[in-house]
Amino acid sequence: MEFETFKEFFSLENIQNLLSQYRSFGPLPGVLLPMLEAFLPVLPLFVFIMANAAAFGLWGGFVYSWLGTCGGALIVFFLVRKYGQKRLFLFISRHKRIKKLLDWIERHGFGPLFLILCFPFTPSSAINVVAGLSKIKTSQFVLAVLCGKLVMVFMVSYIGYDVRALFQQPVRTAITGVIIVILWFVGKQLEKRLTQGLSKKVKSK
C-alpha cells in the first residue's frame, strides 16, 4: 500500500464510517483501534481519537480512546519486560541512542514520561518498548501512562468533538492547561507515596 493510499484509507471520514458500520459491536471498535496503534505506530492515533469523539460523543469517545491507548501501551510494556532478554531486544538495547534513552528514563522516572505522553505526536510506541527494557519501576510507568494519556486523549477528543469551540470558547481551552498542571501535581504525590510504600516494604523484610 502506497503512502498516499494509506493516508486516504485512514482519513477521519473513513474511520468515522468504519465506526458507524460496526456500531452493533458497541464500544469495542472504539477501544481496539487506539490499542492497535501501540503495536503498529504508523497508524494515526490522533485520527482514531477524533473519530471516537465524533462517533460516541466527547465523554464516551474519550473513555474508549483512553482505555484503548492505555491498554495497548501497558501490554507492549509488559511483553517487552517479560521477553526483554531475547536476542532481538538485546540487539535494540545495545544501540547507542537507545542506551541514552534507557539511561534518561531510568534517571528521571515519572515526570518526563508524563510530559512526553501528554502530547499526541510524540513517539509513545518507542517509549513503551524502551521503558520495558529499562529498570524503571512498573508503578512509575503505569502511573505515567494513565495520567499522561488521560491529558492527551482528552485534548484530542475535545478537538475532535468540536473544533470551533477551541476558538470560540478560549476559557474552555485554558482549562486543558490547568488539567495538565493538576495531574502533574497529583502524579508526583502518588509517585512519592508509592516510593515510600516500597521503601517501607524493603526495610521491613
Rank of each mutant, 00 (worst) to 15 (best):
P170C: 00
Q21P: 12
L43G: 03
P170E: 03
V163F: 14
L198K: 12
V76E: 01
F39N: 05
M152R: 01
F77N: 03
I116P: 06
G60E: 04
K96E: 09
P170W: 04
S125V: 08
Q189R: 14
A38L: 03
P41N: 08
F110A: 09
S24E: 15
V202R: 13
L19S: 06
H108R: 10
K96N: 10
F9L: 15
Q196W: 13
S157P: 09
L183M: 05
G177D: 02
I182H: 06
L143F: 07
V151D: 06
R23L: 14
K96M: 13
A126Q: 11
Q169W: 12
L133K: 02
S204D: 14
Q189P: 08
L90Q: 13
I15D: 01
P44T: 01
Y64H: 07
H108L: 08
E37T: 12
L113H: 02
L194E: 13
H108P: 07
K86S: 14
K7T: 14
L28N: 10
G61M: 09
N14A: 06
Q16S: 14
K200V: 08
V186C: 00
G26E: 04
T138C: 09
F78V: 11
M35W: 04
T5M: 14
H108G: 11
L117N: 11
P120I: 04
I15C: 02
L166E: 00
Q85M: 15
E4D: 12
I49T: 05
P170N: 04
G187R: 04
V63N: 05
A51I: 07
S124M: 10
S157I: 00
W104D: 09
G68V: 03
L79Y: 02
G177L: 02
F167T: 14
K82F: 08
L194V: 11
T173E: 08
R23D: 15
G177I: 01
A144M: 04
I127T: 08
C118I: 01
G187V: 03
I98G: 10
M50S: 00
K201C: 15
I175R: 01
L166Y: 07
C70P: 03
K82Y: 08
A53P: 00
T195G: 11
L115W: 10
G72K: 06
L12N: 06
L194I: 15
V42Q: 10
I127E: 05
R107T: 12
P41D: 10
R87G: 09
L40G: 12
L183V: 06
V178I: 14
F167M: 07
